[in-house]
C-alpha cells in the first residue's frame, strides 16, 4: 500500500505541474506521468493486460500530443484571478467529494470484491471457452457485445476525425457538385 501512496502523490504532483507550467512540451510530459503511474499501479494490482494496454496507449498519445504541441502556439494565457469562479468551483468540488464519500462508504473493502458472477467465470471459464487467458475469455466470449461496442466507438470516432480533418483540403464547390447534392441556386 505504501507504494500506491507514493505513486498517487507522484501522479497528483505531475498533474499539478502539467496545469501550472508555462511551456507546453513540459506540460505534456508532466501529464504523461499520470498515465505511466496508472500503468504501474495496474501492474501491481495483478492486471498485466490493462497495464500493457495503458502503457502503449500512453506512449502513442504522448507522441501525438508532442507532435501537435511543438508546432502549436506556445504562449501561456495570462492569469486572471476570478474569485466568484473559484468559490463556485470549490463548492462543487466539495459537493462531489461528499457524494463520493456517501456512495463509496457502503462498498466492500479494497481488494475484496463481490465474486458472484466472476467466480463462475474463474471456475468454468477454461472449460466453456478454452482460452487460457481469462481476460480474453471474458472480453471476447462472455462480454463480446462490450468489445463490439468498443470497436464501433473507435470506428465511428475515426470516421468523424477523417471528416473533420479533411475539411482543410476539400476541393471547392463547382456547379456539378451543386446539381449532385441538390443545392438550390
Amino acid at each position: 500500500m505504501a507504494l500506491f501512496i507514493v505513486i498517487l502523490i507522484l501522479m497528483i504532483a505531475g498533474s499539478v505541474v502539467a496545469v501550472e507550467i508555462k511551456n507546453m512540451l513540459s506540460a505534456v510530459i508532466a501529464a504523461g506521468i499520470v498515465g505511466f503511474g496508472v500503468s504501474v499501479m495496474f501492474l501491481f494490482l495483478k492486471a498485466p493486460d490493462i497495464a500493457i494496454t495503458q502503457v502503449i496507449v500512453e506512449v502513442l498519445s504522448l507522441i501525438i500530443l508532442i507532435r501537435i504541441t511543438t508546432n502549436a502556439d506556445n504562449e501561456a494565457i495570462e492569469k486572471k484571478i476570478d474569485n466568484f469562479a473559484n468559490i463556485v468551483g470549490l463548492i462543487f468540488v466539495g459537493l462531489f467529494v461528499a457524494f463520493c464519500f456517501w456512495a463509496f462508504v457502503d462498498m466492500t473493502a479494497f481488494g475484496t470484491p463481490i465474486m458472484r458472477v466472476s467466480q463462475h467465470y474463474l471456475s468454468a471459464g477454461l472449460e466453456e471457452t478454452g482460452a487460457a487467458n481469462m481476460v480474453a475469455a471474458v472480453i471476447l466470449d462472455y462480454r463480446a457485445y462490450d468489445t463490439l461496442g468498443e470497436a464501433v466507438v473507435i470506428f465511428t470516432s475515426i470516421l468523424g476525425a477523417f471528416v473533420i480533418l479533411r475539411s482543410r483540403g476539400k476541393k471547392k464547390l463547382t456547379e456539378k457538385d451543386m446539381e449532385k447534392v441538390g443545392i438550390p441556386e
Partner: peptide
C-alpha cells in the same frame, strides 16, 4: 480487432499530422 485498431490509430496519426498538407 488488432488489424482494426492498428490501422485506425495509424490513420488518426496521419490525419492529425499531415492530412491537410498532403491533399
Amino acid at each position: 480487432i488488432g488489424i482494426k485498431v492498428g490501422a485506425c490509430l495509424y490513420a488518426i496519426f496521419i490525419g492529425l499530422s499531415i492530412y491537410g498538407r498532403v491533399i
